[in-house]
């Protein structure tokens, strides 16, 4: 069996803003379907790492290769278009990907209905609660069937119950490969690689295969995975530096 092409391959990636180095010489690889959690304190560059992965911020140095046809991004703040309804916010990326508005709206409606937002399809974001907006943002990210799903502290600011609901929703939708979770069900046809950054370890998804810690000195293994979801061979993708103590 040949080696699996990584969805994301960062080698010695550095990002600078003016004279300030956000991070440097960062190595990270993500296999298809792999769920990787990145922990780190605020301001260490976690969101910047995701922005480089999304292709909206160029790396200042190194090689940042992303082999994803479609990317889903759940931002820390929802980033919904305030002048579009919940339905259209989810449908818009689908239209950008080539679907007609009618098809896109139909799919968006199905996905939103399955996440408990059936009564709010035509509501503008201003009329939705914070949790609902974040759910719409999550559905938008999943609707495009991403090869790479980027999660930037998606549960921040949500109450514990809603946080749990969101985690379960995400886990359900990430469950790929099962006939019960095909496109019609709103799941992902192909397993999406997930890069989930947070400053709070308990927020990580149960299916997280590897947990890394981003600090001023780069990425380090935070702890060994206790429950690998896919059982994929992660050894080939682990280029992260280990701290001296480990």
């Amino acid at each position: 069996m040949g080696t699996v092409e990584p969805v994301l391959d960062f080698r010695n990636v550095s990002v600078r803003r003016g004279a300030r180095t956000i991070f440097r010489d960062l190595d990270l690889r993500l296999a298809p379907g792999e769920v990787v959690g990145i922990l780190g304190p605020s301001g260490v560059g976690k969101s910047t790492l995701l922005r480089v992965a999304a292709g909206i911020l160029p790396a200042s140095g190194g090689l940042a290769r992303v082999e994803a046809r479609r990317i889903g991004f759940v931002f820390q703040e929802h980033r919904l278009l305030p002048w579009r309804t919940a339905l259209d916010n989810v449908a818009l990326p689908l239209v950008a990907a080539g679907r007609t508005w009618r098809m896109a709206r139909r799919r968006a409606a199905r996905l939103l209905e399955r996440t408990g937002l059936a009564a709010h399809l035509e509501d503008f974001p201003v009329r939705l609660s914070g949790g609902m907006r974040q759910r719409v943002s999550l559905v938008r990210a999943l609707a495009v069937e991403p090869d790479l799903l980027l999660l930037d502290e998606p549960f921040t600011g949500l109450d514990p119950e809603l946080r749990q609901d969101m985690r379960e929703l995400l886990e359900t939708r990430l469950a790929a490969g099962s006939p019960a979770h095909d496109e019609a069900d709103g799941g992902l046809r192909r397993p999406a690689a997930v890069l989930h950054v947070t400053h709070d370890a308990p927020e990580l998804l149960p299916s997280t295969a590897r947990v890394l810690r981003l600090g001023p000195d780069g990425l380090h293994v935070y702890r060994a995975p206790c429950c690998c979801r896919t059982g994929a061979d992660h050894a080939g993708h682990g280029h992260e530096k280990r701290p001296p103590s480990e």
């Binding site: 922005r51 999304a54 292709g55 909206i56 990317i71 991004f73 931002f75 703040e77 980033r79 278009l81 818009l92 990326p93 239209v95 950008a96 990907a97 938008r140 495009v144």
Partner: peptide
């Protein structure tokens, strides 16, 4: 114009007209 919305548009590859 909210730069966050422009980033979102970049992530989801919205064409210039959109």
């Amino acid at each position: 114009v909210d730069p966050g919305l422009l980033e979102m548009a970049g992530v989801y590859r919205l064409p210039t007209a959109m």
